[in-house]
Nucleic acid binder design. Structure first.
Lengths: 187, 187
DNA sequence: GCCCTCGGCTAATGTCATTAGCCTTCTGGC
DNA sequence: GCCAGAAGGCTAATGACATTAGCCGAGGGC
């Protein structure tokens, strides 16, 4: 007999992430998670309140995951190099975890926990822009532009939305250069 | 007795769009559509093959809708003005129809009908860039950049993903300027 | 040794999608 | 006018899910 690790909310979310990775966000179902846990579906309710809550928790985990990776990627660099690194790291994350990214909440505004961790992720972007001397609103706009670029590209790419054969790396490089140019003109 | 219009695939899609508008993409259910049509759920199968097909058809309709609007918006202008107009029209469409936009397929690659109409929409963007003298790959990259910008911004905005109070019009204007700058430097 | 909580289970309900099979109505051909 | 057949609706049934209620055994604190 294998020693059954006790089921906890954390392990349930772990399993849920596995389901998302394999079956996509829509494949995330309590039944699927329960089966992987070797447990009857209703038993999950001892650990999570509902499918909706589980999805929220998965979203939080993804946000944490991204925050961690991007923070690590960007550490030790600054200026254009940092921005470039961050943008590449973002694209790489989404390419490596397309389903997870699709499970990321676009509107973390509602759930307070999600909002907190989403704020951290934003903070990484914001901090990466430090050194360009942006003040107040200008920094907010610059962060938003960055977010639009990385999310726009990544979401289309991960959905397989770019049909033509032209090099996507080249397109992404152009986006990076475009963004860096505005930063330079602004500071 | 009101004269019952005969149900056709087209009217079913019309009703489905109404459901999407009100309840979001996830609220689109055969049961909901059937109820609005005043018909039992299985009866819908006389008109659409499955829920999946209905979603595809809804996606097509949204793409057609957008294509039509953007074409009209951009007619008669060219250069920076045309690009600016297109970008504003895109944002306006998504703001006016957030749920519909969320129902738009990001990967029209699979269904041939969707691919065709998606190609038309891309064609509008592509045509808008005429006059910048872009050749071959450069035009493709420029179109992609445009798409990334408008989709990135619109999808975040429509999801309520911009939390801070700073003016979103300003952010969008900056994105437009950013894009126009790259176009000028390229042509 | 007793009680209680934890974490699992089964049974039941309700919502959906989907399939099968029936029935009525209209239409075209004769 | 009559009939076949297609169109378009319906009911019944099945199977996946989420969710709720209520049962039960094991283990720990006392």
């Amino acid at each position: 007999m294998v020693i059954k690790k006790p089921l906890t909310p954390t392990t349930v979310v772990d399993v849920a992430l596995g389901v998302v990775d394999e079956d996509g966000p829509d494949g995330l179902t309590l039944a699927a998670v329960a089966q992987r846990c070797g447990v009857a579906t209703p038993s999950l309710y001892k650990h999570v309140a509902s499918l909706g809550e589980l999805k929220t928790l998965v979203g939080v985990r993804v946000l944490e995951d991204m925050t961690e990776q991007f923070t690590a990627a960007v550490l030790g660099s600054s200026g254009d190099e940092a921005v470039t690194t961050l943008m590449h790291a973002y694209r790489a994350y989404v390419a490596a975890n397309p389903n997870r990214y699709a499970a990321m909440p676009m509107d973390p505004v509602h759930d307070p926990v999600q909002r907190a961790i989403a704020g951290k992720l934003l903070g990484v972007m914001y901090a990466t822009l430090r050194g360009y001397g942006l003040e107040g609103p200008a920094a907010v706009h610059a962060t938003r532009r960055l977010r639009v670029l990385v999310h726009g590209f990544a979401s289309i790419e991960s959905a397989g939305g770019f049909g033509l054969p032209e090099d996507l790396d080249e397109t992404y490089d152009q986006l990076i250069q475009m963004y860096l140019t505005t930063l330079r003109n602004e500071s």
